[in-house]
Simulated scan of single mutants.
Amino acid sequence: MANIKSAIKRVRVNEEHRLQNQSFKADMRSHIKKVEALVESKDVENAKAALQTAVKKIDKAVQKGLIHQNKGDRQKSRLAQQVNNLSA
């Protein structure tokens, strides 16, 4: 454990940020799974609505630096493709 006051604070702040990031990423994954479940049950209208919220969550995670830009784009693309194939 750190002895210096600033190092102690750094450890505390890093832990708080880690927990916030963990929570945000879990929320993002939940929204992605919700879209996939709606696609699986062939619910077009609710899948489109859930896709919009999932895209917002993914974009926010990219903006915060929690996931890489390319990963966010890939996830959005795959979800959109699933929803579009469902309605076609």
Rank of each mutant, 00 (worst) to 15 (best):
V13K: 11
H68I: 05
G72R: 01
Q20E: 14
K9Q: 11
A7W: 06
E16C: 03
Q81M: 12
K34L: 13
Q52G: 14
R12A: 12
I4E: 10
V83C: 05
E45I: 05
K34M: 09
L19M: 03
A26V: 07
E16A: 09
K64R: 08
S6P: 02
V39E: 03
Q22E: 12
Q82R: 12
A49D: 09
S87Y: 02
H17R: 00
A80C: 04
S30A: 15
L51R: 02
Q22L: 08
L86V: 01
L19C: 00
V11M: 13
E15Q: 09
E40Q: 12
A2K: 08
D59R: 15
T53M: 06
S77E: 14
R29N: 10
V13M: 07
S30K: 13
R18D: 15
V11P: 08
A2S: 15
T53N: 11
K60E: 03
S77M: 09
R74W: 12
S30M: 09
R18V: 13
E15V: 00
V44F: 00
A54F: 04
S30R: 14
S30N: 12
G65N: 06
H31D: 13
E45Q: 09
S77W: 10
K25P: 00
N70E: 15
V62Q: 02
L86E: 02
H17T: 13
A50N: 07
N14D: 08
V11Y: 09
T53C: 03
K5S: 14
V62C: 01
D59L: 09
A37V: 05
L38W: 04
E40D: 14
K56G: 03
Q52S: 13
S77T: 15
E15D: 12
F24W: 02
R78S: 10
K48C: 10
D27P: 06
A54K: 04
K48N: 14
S30W: 00
V39Q: 05
V39A: 06
E45V: 03
L66Y: 11
K57P: 01
Q82W: 04
V39C: 03
I58A: 02
K25T: 08
S87E: 11
V55T: 14
L38A: 01
K33N: 14
Q82S: 10
Q69I: 07
D59C: 06
